[in-house]
C-alpha cells in the first residue's frame, strides 16, 4: 500500500503541493488529474523518491520511505516517463533489460535478452525491433519500449507519466488498453498522470484531482458522473 501523509512542497515562494494525504490500496490504479502546473509530476517524483517533500512523508507497506526502503521500493517499481526516457546509446533490448543487466537481481545476457523480447512481445512489438536503437523508433513505439522496460521485472508498483502525450488518438487508445491489461495482469498498484478523461476511464480505478496545490477531489472512477465539483465537470465535459 502506498500512503502519502501531509505532503507539502514549495519552489521558492510558489507552493506546489499543500498538505496532500492519500492512501492507495494494493492493486489499485489511480489517475492523477489536474491543470498544468498543479503539481502532478512533483507528487509522483516525491513518491518515487526523486524529490524530497518539504513536509510530510511517503509510507510504503507501513514503512516510512528511508534510503534503504526507497531502494527496495524502486527494485519493485516500473516507470514510464513522459518522453519515454530511453537510453540513446543502448539498443531496444538493452533498454528493456537494463534492470536485469544492472540491477540487484542480475541475470545473464542471454536470459536478459530472452526476457526483454518477451516483454517487447507483451507490448506488441516484434523481436526484430530488439536490435534497433531508440532514435530508429516512432514516438508510439518508444512508448511501448518504455512500457516494456517498466514491466520487465514484474513490478508491484507502476508509474505512468502522461502515457499518451504526443501520440495520435489510435495509438493512444492502444497504449491505454495495454496499460490496463498490464496493470490487471501484474496485479500492480499504479499511478498515472494524465489530462485525458478517456484514458482515465480505461486505465484507472480511482481519480485524484489536484488544484491550487491541494487535493480537490478523490474518488472512484465510477463516481465521476455523480461528482458535483465544477472543475471536474469541466474536465468531464471535454
Amino acid at each position: 500500500m502506498i500512503a502519502l501523509e501531509h505532503i507539502s512542497k514549495s519552489f521558492g515562494t510558489k507552493q506546489v503541493l499543500d498538505d496532500i494525504s492519500l492512501s492507495l490500496e494494493d492493486g489499485t490504479s489511480l489517475a492523477v488529474l489536474g491543470r498544468s502546473g498543479t503539481g502532478k509530476s512533483v507528487l509522483t517524483r516525491i513518491v518515487l523518491g526523486l524529490m524530497a517533500p518539504d513536509a510530510g512523508r511517503v509510507v510504503i507497506d507501513g514503512t516510512p520511505m528511508t534510503r534503504r526502503a526507497r531502494r527496495a521500493f524502486l527494485e519493485d517499481t516500473g516507470v514510464l516517463f513522459q518522453g519515454s526516457a530511453l537510453f540513446d546509446s543502448l539498443s531496444v533490448w538493452e533498454n528493456v533489460a537494463f534492470r536485469l543487466r544492472n540491477g540487484r537481481k542480475r541475470v545473464g545476457r542471454m536470459e536478459a535478452r530472452r526476457r526483454a523480447e518477451e516483454a517487447l512481445d507483451r507490448v506488441g512489438l516484434e523481436a526484430r525491433v530488439a536490435d534497433l536503437y531508440p532514435a530508429d523508433l516512432s514516438g508510439g513505439m518508444q512508448k511501448r519500449v518504455g512500457l516494456a522496460r517498466a514491466i520487465v521485472g514484474t513490478p508491484r508498483y507502476l508509474f505512468f507519466d502522461e502515457p499518451n502525450s504526443g501520440l495520435d488518438p489510435v495509438t493512444s487508445t492502444d497504449i491505454d488498453a495495454l496499460i490496463r491489461e498490464l496493470v490487471t495482469d501484474l496485479g500492480a498498484t499504479a499511478i498515472t498522470i494524465t489530462h485525458d478523461m478517456a484514458s482515465i476511464r480505461t486505465i484507472a480505478d480511482e481519480v485524484l484531482l489536484l488544484d491550487a496545490s491541494r487535493a480537490r477531489w478523490h474518488g472512484r472512477v465510477s463516481d465521476l458522473g455523480s461528482a458535483e465539483d465544477p472543475l471536474l465537470a469541466r474536465f468531464l465535459a471535454r
Binding site: V79, Q82, A85, N102, G103
Partner: peptide
C-alpha cells in the same frame, strides 16, 4: 533534461 537520469534512478542505478 530528457529524464534519462531519473530513469536510471528508478531502475535502481
Amino acid at each position: 533534461v530528457s529524464e534519462q537520469v531519473d530513469a536510471l534512478v528508478t531502475l535502481s542505478t
